[in-house]
């Protein structure tokens, strides 16, 4: 594919969505298939979250995701997560789990920390195959779970190359 300045299909070849998700925007059947895949992936994200949280409630709060709402390139999106916690032996963040909705796999990363961390404040960079929801879950020492979620819009880089 020698096309062009910017294309969804070419872009996906560089991104993790490339595998099964190569599709053509213009063809209605391909589009429908992509939508169906998207729904399946949302379900996969819910299942991945449930595997961590179980039957516990998952209120929004205490954890805060910072992701640029509009990113320039889905290959390296800066992600910051902070959780409100005294980080003492009695009351601290045990782990932070990060999930996405439309990547081929819902899990992004798990960070395990404890009272010695001093703060629950981490940064990394992640891949986003498309505009989608990113969810972070904080697992606390008292057994509670908290979540935050943010919708990130991924722009297309101009002037890609043939692979």
């Amino acid at each position: 594919m020698t096309e062009l300045l910017t294309t969804a299909v070419t872009r996906r070849r560089f991104l993790i969505g490339a595998g099964g998700a190569v599709m053509v925007m213009a063809a209605p059947s391909a589009r429908a298939q992509f939508v169906a895949e998207g729904e399946a992936r949302s379900a996969a994200m819910r299942a991945a979250i449930k595997a961590i949280v179980g039957e516990n409630s998952l209120p929004q709060g205490r954890i805060k995701i910072e992701l640029p709402p509009l990113v320039e390139n889905g290959n390296a999106v800066p992600l910051s997560i902070a959780v409100e916690s005294p980080m003492t032996d009695a009351d601290h963040v045990k782990a932070i789990h990060v999930f996405t909705e439309k990547n081929p796999q819902p899990n992004v990363a798990v960070f395990q920390l404890g009272p010695r961390a001093g703060t629950a404040d981490i940064q990394t960079r992640m891949r986003l195959a498309d505009t989608q929801l990113v969810v972070a879950v904080a697992e606390m020492s008292d057994g509670s779970f908290w979540r935050d979620e943010v919708e990130v819009v991924v722009t297309l880089a101009a002037c890609l190359e043939e692979s």
Binding site: T7, M25, A26
Partner: peptide, 25 residues
């Protein structure tokens, strides 16, 4: 319409905007 919206065929939306609420950027 499909040609105009398709960034590999029509290429139009690379430079132009248009009444395509479903197309970002």
């Amino acid at each position: 319409r499909a040609i105009v919206a398709n960034r590999q065929v029509g290429l139009c939306l690379l430079c132009h905007s248009g009444p395509f609420p479903e197309e970002r950027f």
